[in-house]
Design a binder for these strands. Structure first.
Length: 573
RNA sequence: ACCCCCGUAGCUCAGGCGGAUAGAGCAUCGGAUUUCUAAUCCGAUGGUCGCAGGUUCAAGUCCUGCCGGGGGUGCCA
């Protein structure tokens, strides 16, 4: 299906081109957008203002000429020139109703499969082994997963990869800590917490004395050289961590195609160095091997330390090359926090020099902070992700018990789970990620206003209406009646319904799930106004069925849209 | 010192390509339920879009400088 803005843009651009051929290249910028306010019609075109310069004519004259000479497609009721030269477009209500009926009928709710035959690799979540996932990890996980779902729905072949931090210098510290401080009972009860405790303690020791640090390095060298005992310990740390991560992923409804840690690429690191040297990109400097990026005005990128060890730039380059060879993707997307911006600029630049063809994109988000400042494992002021999820479900359960006391307890709990987890996810998905976020319980767990429960509530209300319709009018098929948009609120709702495809494609194109969240919130707002202000079941026959059908299409969009954000929609809440 | 990001209502934030009177949520105040789930709806209050210049028909949006906050800058990731 073609979206309304596209239908209108195609028409307006063709007509502008016919009427004003002298405008030339500027015509490619002609487009139609939704109207800024209902007062200005349904859609508007600002091309007359933009073309005024190249045509050397007054904007209003251009717009008027367009009105005089342009054809009228079947969708258009009337056009008007307004303000300095806007062209306001009013759609035929009956045509809009037909369009909504077509969206309703469409399995995909009008969303095109623009990704068919295209591959995207998505690198997200990527927590560090031996550290618990805390509230700072949720953004990459939740945003990455939404991008994953959006692209799959659009028909892309998606390779999602959880690039675990399972290699590196911290393992020397952990192994030393394990040998000296491990509490087996604690390790059995709460493995990752214990590993973290061990790590922090060993890290403090290494700060205190050089000898400890040296021993940590030795353990690391042994591990990297393939020492059987250290390898076994490392394997154990990874397995214990993965078990806990998977528990959280299950709870969040997140799944990966691949879980390849940094260690997976370890055997390929020497080959990366070879490539860099063969291409003359890497040079010795101060005992280390580095790539100079002066032409790009970037700091040097170190690929081998003076002690011969590799660092994360080398690993990420190996990862890039591996992904290019194995999947030949059109795009590779990384979802990480803002601190890695420079790192990825360097990696992308070096990667291009090495012949990586894929488009490379870094989706970054602001760090999560606490009101009193940053948190860190070592300061011990982290809030574990599981605690956040527990708290959210608890708060949701309290509300469910209060508002739906008659609901069986296991259903109350299921609803609280969907609402609680949904609220936490939505808090991160509904805002532009590129701002620093100060964590607050009230904000993360908001259950009213612009929140997941607001959308889930709208959905549940619709399901209830549909059930009541079936009860009161058994055997009747609303689909046999046409959609009617007599009330302004119905018309506004229909316009929003028609824009679902636009919201989904834009959210994916801009890598911003918040675009879809905003859309769904606006849809719910319009629906709630509709619900509140016009009768459905008590409306006369015909009007009643039309409204039930509108309810139905809104429900499907809410369910599909929330699913794309990774949020569940209970039938009752 | 340099580089990147942010600064919009009391608080938290939306505002692809520059477009009409800058929008939500929370909070505050006032209304709405014999009727489809009130986790809702309707209304009100609340703004020199950090500051100063510039570009143009038009700037929250683009450019320059400054102020404030955050992050980063070859041997952690």
């Amino acid at each position: 299906m073609t979206t309304i803005d596209q239908i209108l843009t195609d028409w307006v651009r063709a007509e502008f081109t016919r009427i004003f051929p002298e405008a030339g290249d500027a015509l490619s910028a002609v487009q139609v957008v939704s109207a800024g306010s209902p007062d200005y019609g349904d859609y508007q075109c600002n091309a007359a203002l933009a073309l005024a310069r190249s045509l050397k004519r007054k904007p209003r004259d251009i717009a008027q000429t367009f009105l005089d000479q342009a054809s009228r497609p079947e969708s258009v009721e009337r056009l008007e020139v307004a303000g300095p030269g806007f062209i306001n477009i009013h759609l035929k209500t009956i045509w809009l109703a037909g369009h909504v009926a077509a969206v309703l009928k469409d399995e995909r709710l009008g969303v095109p499969t623009i990704g068919t035959g295209r591959t995207v690799v998505l690198d997200y979540s990527s927590p560090n082994v031996a550290k618990p996932m805390h509230i700072g990890h949720i953004r990459s996980t939740v945003i990455g997963n939404a991008l994953d779902r959006l692209h799959r729905f659009l028909g892309y072949r998606v390779i999602s990869d959880n690039h675990l931090g399972d290699w590196g210098t911290q393992f020397g510290i952990i192994i030393m800590g394990y040998r000296h401080f491990a509490d087996q009972q604690a390790l059995a009860d709460s493995p990752v917490e214990e590993l973290e405790r061990i790590y922090v303690k060993s890290y403090e020791q290494s700060k205190a004395g050089d000898e400890w640090l040296q021993q940590c390095r030795q353990e690391l060298v042994k591990l990297q050289a393939g020492d059987a005992e250290n390898q076994a310990l490392w394997r154990q740390f990874v397995d214990l961590s993965l078990k806990e991560f998977n528990r959280i992923y299950l709870r969040l409804g997140v799944a990966f195609d691949l879980t390849r840690g940094e260690s997976y690429y370890n055997p390929r690191l020497p080959a990366v160095i070879d490539m860099l040297q063969q291409k003359g990109l890497a040079r010795e400097s101060e005992g280390a091997l580095v790539v100079f990026l002066e032409d790009e005005k970037l700091p040097v990128c170190m690929v081998r330390k003076s002690d011969g060890g590799y660092n994360y730039a080398t690993t990420d380059l190996a990862t890039l090359i591996s992904r290019q060879e194995e999947f030949d993707p059109e795009t590779i997307v990384y979802v990480t926090d803002e601190r890695q911006q420079l790192h990825f600029k360097q990696i992308f630049t070096v990667g291009k020099k090495l012949g990586i063809r894929a488009r490379l994109h870094h989706v970054w988000f602001g760090l999560m902070r606490l009101p009193e400042g940053t948190f860190s494992t070592r300061q011990g002021n982290v809030i574990k992700l599981e605690r956040l999820l527990d708290e959210s479900e608890t708060r949701a359960l309290a509300v469910v018990r209060q508002t739906s006391p008659a609901m069986p307890e296991n259903q109350q709990k299921a609803v609280a789970r969907a609402v609680g987890i949904g609220a936490v996810k939505y808090a991160d998905l509904s805002q532009n990620p590129q701002s620093l976020v100060t964590f607050s319980w009230d904000k993360a767990l908001a259950l009213d206003g612009n929140s997941a429960p607001y959308l889930q509530y709208a959905y549940a209300r619709i399901r209830s209406v549909q059930d009541k319709y079936r009860d009161q009018f058994p055997g009747r098929d609303p689909e046999a009646f046409p959609i009617r948009l007599d009330e302004p609120v119905e018309r506004a709702l229909a316009l929003q319904v028609a824009r679902f495809a636009e919201a989904v494609t834009m959210a994916a194109r801009l890598y911003k799930p918040s675009v879809l969240a905003d859309y769904l919130f606006a849809l719910s707002g319009l629906y709630n106004g509709f619900y509140q202000n016009v009768p459905f079941l008590k409306a006369p026959e015909g009007v009643r069925e039309s409204r039930v059908r509108l309810c139905g299409v809104v429900a499907r969009i809410l369910r599909q849209g929330l699913d794309l954000l990774g949020i569940e929609t209970p039938e009752r809440i």
